[in-house]
């Protein structure tokens, strides 16, 4: 188990040192800042669109950060070493994604309320928004990890990762943004939250197997 945490910690340290955390949070804010320029500054309109916009920006931020999650390891030979670690590759992959989640996604989730305020969300809407994102983001990271692991041997695989991952993101987006939309109406949407949790749980079980298979294929 200590191997798991060591891997997780290493990934976190690297994400932090490489400035990935700062970049991702900045990306989120820039994305949100662009919205009023595109849509006009009417606060009512921004509020109505906020849940969808925030989810889209979150997804884009995640995808741009995920494309390098295994690629750096592929390029510097660490992927070979990951095959030989005293931990099955499925868990190695999981450890790295957990590190990624803590180092990048948690700061992003913490930044989301502030971004929401920029789009005229009231503080009362924020708990539900955060809850939906917290329930759905593990699925986003794990499913994006599948795209990243399939594209790992492609030199400039960023766009390919996005193209491969987006179809997997459709269901999470639908239920995540839907739950947030309900929050605007002052309702707590337990069904959608439960489905989001289900997506996260299912990807937790299935994604590591797919990622490990893709990575084993990449070192051949």
């Amino acid at each position: 188990m200590s191997v798991f945490w060591a891997l997780c910690r290493q990934h976190m340290v690297l994400a932090w040192r490489g400035g990935h955390t700062t970049l991702a949070v900045a990306f989120l804010f820039i994305g949100v800042t662009l919205m009023p320029f595109g849509l006009g500054p009417e606060l009512a309109l921004l509020q109505a669109l906020a849940p969808g916009l925030l989810w889209v920006v979150l997804v884009m931020t995640l995808l741009t950060s995920l494309d390098r999650v295994f690629q750096a390891d592929y390029e510097d030979g660490s992927l070979d070493q990951m095959m030989l670690m005293p931990l099955p590759l499925e868990f190695v992959v999981l450890a790295k994604l957990l590190g990624h989640y803590i180092a990048l996604v948690v700061p992003l989730l913490l930044a989301v309320p502030l971004a929401g305020l920029l789009l005229n969300l009231a503080p009362a809407h924020l708990p539900m928004l955060l809850l939906a994102m917290a329930a759905g983001s593990p699925a986003l990271v794990l499913l994006g990890g599948i795209g990243a692991s399939l594209a790992v041997s492609v030199r400039r695989g960023g766009l390919l990762t996005v193209l491969l991952s987006l179809p997997f993101y459709v269901p999470v987006m639908i239920f995540g943004a839907g739950a947030t939309q309900q929050a605007l109406a002052g309702e707590i949407d337990a069904t959608r939250l439960a489905i989001l949790c289900l997506f996260s749980l299912a990807s937790l079980l299935a994604a590591p197997v797919a990622m490990a298979a893709a990575l084993r294929n990449a070192v051949r």
Binding site: L150, S153, V154, L160, L163, L164, A210, N217, A218, R220
Partner: peptide, 24 residues
């Protein structure tokens, strides 16, 4: 289709695409 084109080594491309087909 993109993954077939992006990976230049034929055997690896084939296996990666097959994996994608399954998860897709």
């Amino acid at each position: 289709i993109a993954i077939w084109q992006a990976i230049d080594e034929p055997t690896r491309a084939a296996r990666t695409a097959a994996l994608l087909a399954v998860v897709g």
